[in-house]
Simulated assay, not measured.
Amino acid sequence: MTTTAPQPSRTASPARRPLSGRVAVVTGASSGIGEATAWELAAQGAHVALLARRGERLAEHAARIEEAGGTALALPADVTDRASLASAAAGVRARFGRVDLVVNNAGLALPDLLDGSAGGTWQRMIDVNVTGAFAVAEEFVPDLLAAAAERGHADLVNISSAAARTILPGFAGYAASKAAFSHLSHNLRARLSPADVRVTTVEPGAVDTELRDHIGDPAVSAAVQEAMEAIGTLPSGAEVAELIAFAVSRPRHVNLSHLSVLPTREV
């Protein structure tokens, strides 16, 4: 299910722009939680760089953010390609300066049915959800450390999944990759928090985004759709984005380190 583009939830009132002056990077920003988060951070005053592989969609999102009064930059990038990521990071710094807020969101959810075809999808999810996520952190941590030393805090927000903590038949690779990412995120917090870099791990459950449209297998897609309908109303990407913006706008001595976002009926 593809959702309509989220709209900024805040007005341009200075009193309601707590992220003014901050420089944010959002990966996986071409759709879903990433797209919504870019909108929300820009609406709250941040200069936002949108990173993802789909350059045309990024450009459209950035243009709409700027039309709404925000500041945005579209930079096509693949988190599994270190050169591509480094080039995008250089583009952010050239336009906005040092980054002090990173939303590490790019992710992939594919089924693994143990029918002899799962090896490729397993590797793709490890490459994006674990290795790519680590590459994003590694690229921007020097910026975050320098920003925290100067202004007292910086933020790294890692978007994992509730699948990291539950059984998800048919999606063992996805669940395993997100469990690895959550554990990585907790370890990054132990490493970075003494330097005043706040690390927040967000683990959404079922969210109404297009991620499940990428499943490919019609039978699995139908089963997932049935499960989603049984849960009922799902949080939208915009609602998760509002929580992310809330977390990074807390006083500098407060770190919301672990956030779980679930539909009311999901257990």
Score class of each variant (00 low, 15 high):
residue 168 L to R: 14
residue 143 D to E: 04
residue 198 R to S: 00
residue 197 V to C: 01
residue 109 A to K: 03
residue 143 D to F: 00
residue 155 D to Q: 07
residue 182 S to W: 08
residue 107 G to T: 06
residue 26 V to Y: 01
residue 131 T to Q: 13
residue 125 M to L: 06
residue 251 P to K: 12
residue 106 A to K: 07
residue 211 L to E: 01
residue 64 R to L: 15
residue 188 L to I: 05
residue 80 T to H: 04
residue 31 S to N: 15
residue 172 A to Y: 11
residue 40 E to F: 12
residue 133 A to Q: 14
residue 170 G to W: 10
residue 94 A to C: 03
residue 65 I to W: 11
residue 146 A to K: 08
residue 115 D to A: 10
residue 59 A to R: 15
residue 71 T to G: 06
residue 240 V to S: 05
residue 138 E to P: 03
residue 205 G to C: 03
residue 261 V to A: 05
residue 162 A to M: 13
residue 105 N to M: 05
residue 78 D to T: 12
residue 79 V to M: 02
residue 163 A to I: 08
residue 21 G to V: 03
residue 201 T to I: 11
residue 245 A to R: 11
residue 59 A to E: 15
residue 46 A to H: 04
residue 44 Q to K: 15
residue 113 L to K: 12
residue 5 A to C: 08
residue 166 T to H: 13
residue 128 V to M: 08
residue 200 T to N: 00
residue 15 A to E: 10
residue 121 T to E: 07
residue 127 D to V: 10
residue 151 R to S: 12
residue 119 G to C: 08
residue 66 E to G: 12
residue 43 A to H: 01
residue 175 A to I: 07
residue 45 G to T: 09
residue 4 T to P: 13
residue 259 L to H: 11
residue 82 R to N: 02
residue 64 R to Y: 09
residue 247 A to T: 12
residue 156 L to K: 06
residue 97 G to V: 01
residue 46 A to Y: 05
residue 209 T to L: 03
residue 124 R to S: 10
residue 112 D to M: 09
residue 149 A to M: 06
residue 158 N to L: 09
residue 157 V to R: 04
residue 53 R to I: 02
residue 232 G to C: 03
residue 107 G to H: 11
residue 113 L to C: 04
residue 47 H to T: 06
residue 32 G to H: 10
residue 98 R to D: 02
residue 104 N to V: 03
residue 108 L to W: 07
residue 205 G to A: 01
residue 2 T to C: 06
residue 133 A to D: 02
residue 39 W to S: 11
residue 24 A to Y: 00
residue 105 N to G: 01
residue 6 P to K: 07
residue 36 A to Y: 06
residue 224 V to M: 11
residue 43 A to I: 02
residue 211 L to H: 04
residue 23 V to H: 12
residue 28 G to A: 07
residue 42 A to H: 07
residue 20 S to P: 00
residue 171 F to W: 10
residue 31 S to Y: 11
residue 215 I to Y: 03
residue 132 G to M: 05
residue 181 F to M: 14
residue 153 H to K: 11
residue 27 T to M: 07
residue 154 A to I: 06
residue 171 F to R: 10
residue 39 W to G: 04
residue 204 P to K: 09
residue 202 V to E: 00
residue 168 L to C: 06
residue 82 R to I: 04
residue 199 V to H: 03
residue 127 D to T: 08
residue 102 V to F: 10
residue 137 A to K: 09
residue 201 T to M: 11
residue 90 A to V: 01
residue 110 L to Q: 13
residue 39 W to T: 09
residue 157 V to Y: 13
residue 256 L to N: 01
residue 27 T to W: 02
residue 229 E to G: 01
residue 192 L to H: 09
residue 237 G to D: 00
residue 261 V to Q: 05
residue 235 P to W: 00
residue 76 P to Q: 09
residue 2 T to W: 02
residue 153 H to A: 15
residue 267 V to W: 08
residue 261 V to I: 15
residue 58 L to Y: 14
residue 262 L to T: 08
residue 202 V to N: 03
residue 29 A to H: 09
residue 220 V to G: 01
residue 118 A to T: 12
residue 256 L to A: 03
residue 102 V to Y: 05
residue 70 G to D: 07
residue 169 P to T: 06
residue 249 S to W: 05
residue 234 L to H: 05
residue 195 A to L: 14
residue 159 I to V: 15
residue 102 V to P: 07
residue 168 L to I: 09
residue 89 A to Y: 01
residue 157 V to K: 08
residue 15 A to L: 14
residue 39 W to I: 13
residue 249 S to Q: 07
residue 190 A to T: 08
residue 252 R to T: 10
residue 39 W to A: 13
residue 38 A to M: 13
residue 119 G to Y: 06
